[in-house]
Amino acid sequence: MIQQGGGALGIGEIPIGPTWQTNYFIGADAQGRDVMARVLYGGRASLEIGIGSALICCGIALVLALLAGFFRGPIDALLSRLMDLIWAFPVYLLAISLATVLLTKPNGLQWGFVHVDPSSLWVPTAIIALVYVPYVFRPVRGQVLSVREKEYVEAAIAQGASNGRLMFGEILPNVITTVIVMLPLMIATTVLTESALSFLSIGVQPPKASWGTIIDDGQSLLYTRPWVAIAPGIMIVLTVLSLNVLGDGVRDALDPRAKLRMRG
């Protein structure tokens, strides 16, 4: 088992990885922390944020797309314009803007009953979820618009079904596949985004670590302790690669015609 901070180290004894010990398998960072342990713990944060923000993003986008596509008219116009506006911002710049603003408040934010601590993982999760909402919203809304015109929806209206039943009972089951197909690729994208934000030190805040923050730490140790930066990067590549492969598979299985576009 690899444990954080296992073993005491003196000055000049900080091992440079890779080694064949179970402790300090790939060495320690400048503060003597076991890089392997940090990578594993950091991975937890990265995956939590990646999966969490992808789920939140898809959830929000799905509900908004259902509302916009179902009610059309002013609701659709409003939501679509809002999405266009978010879309107009480069993903990273928008995330940077939001993160910077939230980080200028040292004691966290207090909105009504909601208290957000700046070092909470929820901050990057929420930011990443928000900036990708238009990317899911657009294709799903288009689908809702077309499904809404189907005769089975008319049949449900003729039976006296309520709006909620039409949206969630009839339309939702027919658009949810699109979201399921997008989900693995969304997680791949959000994991990458999280690492980038953390690398820019506006994602996960110390003392918590994620793969991105470890790469950031490793930047200054690059020539002396390269594994600090290399190891988490390899983890990111492997994770994102498997998510992409999984996503391709899911897409081929569920929706061979889907063309997905993610900008990063």
Binding site: K150, Q159, G160, S162, E170, P173
Partner: peptide, 30 residues
């Protein structure tokens, strides 16, 4: 009191729902 039968038997049944729940839907709604 009044119902409609549609032209296109492919578009008028929700492909994601089972036959039982398609036919039961009006009963459930009312």
């Amino acid at each position: 009191e009044m119902q409609i039968v549609f032209q296109d038997p492919y578009a008028s049944l929700n492909p994601r729902k089972r036959v039982g729940s398609i036919i039961a839907a009006p009963l459930q709604i009312h």
